[in-house]
Design a protein around this nucleic acid. Structure first.
Lengths: 173, 173
DNA sequence: GTCTATAGGCCGATAGAC
DNA sequence: GTCTATCGGCCTATAGAC
């Protein structure tokens, strides 16, 4: 990965996240990245290819975020780490995740398989913890985490530490 | 409201919801609605005006959905009705709500004030029910509802009645 | 008064040639 | 790294049908 190529991805990410994909011109991306417009097409073929590259990066980061939970062997810790997950995302990455969430609403880019391993791990954990309905608990928590992620990015949640402990307490952790 | 005008709104809604606002051409809307393209501009001024009209309808429907909860005087019933809310939305309206969720990501169209009355009502209810932290409970439930709305639209939730009772049980209702 | 058909101006974006 | 061909989308305008 060359430096210029990385700069293109970075600029595209910021612009796509804030102005939307279609309303961001490749010329604007090039200007922002300090490269010639042609270079974008050399590296990514077309504008859609650029978006695709960003999506792949998104899936990679999601797997990275989930990995520690999957590696966990203590059921209670699985639930706890899942809840804490969105709170651990640094603000510097919000642009990135905002774009990912946005793209989830475009059918062609939505891939539900990405979080399947997490759901399965949670089912296992809730079963081990003797919850009455592990499948539903797992589903609720996974989807709920999504919502929390959204709200964090939007800045809806004011007192984050308090909200986190509130949640942990709900699961008696 | 003439018939053609209504047909335009209908087609625009479907296309915006499924293909996105910017990537939907006014010519396509006209074709889908079986009207001349010029008519769109006669009725709505421009493309943004068309979207605005749809959004206004959205806020109206949201208020309609929330109204019964606000009218409720029994605290437990407030919580119960809130939980049941998303389950009562007919599938025929999913396009509509999908668009609303999608547009939440465009700052200019997102208006958080819409659900504020609901949150406040829930704070009141949870206080009356002696929950330890009414503000956070209210916030949590509102977010749950968002999550569930999203899941229903995506078709993630398979057994809806079961999931509904699962949630109600969580609040001991 | 609502609507269609058509024609076209304007703009900006993609893509690729050089 | 610039320049340009080409295309598509937004919107206006007009003349006239129902």
């Amino acid at each position: 990965m060359t430096e210029k190529k990385e700069k293109i991805l970075e600029s595209a990410l910021e612009l796509f996240a804030n102005q939307g994909y279609t309303s961001t011109a490749t010329s604007k991306i090039a200007r922002e990245a300090g490269v010639s417009e042609g270079l974008i097409f050399r590296h990514f073929g077309n504008k859609a290819g650029l978006l695709r590259a960003i999506m792949e990066e998104g899936n990679r980061r999601l797997r990275e975020l989930i990995a520690p939970v999957l590696a966990e062997t203590d059921p209670a810790a699985v639930v706890q780490k899942t809840i804490e997950m969105p709170f651990g995302v640094p603000e510097s990455e919000y642009d990135f995740w905002r774009l990912q969430f946005k793209l989830k609403w475009d059918e062609e880019y939505y891939n539900p398989d990405n979080i399947k391993p997490l759901t399965e791990k949670l089912v296992w954990a809730f079963t081990a913890l003797n919850f009455e309905d592990p499948e539903m608990e797992a589903q609720l928590l996974v989807q709920y985490n999504d919502t929390i992620g959204v709200d964090m990015i939007r800045g809806v949640i004011r007192d984050r530490p308090a909200f986190k402990s509130f949640l942990l307490k709900k699961y008696e952790l």
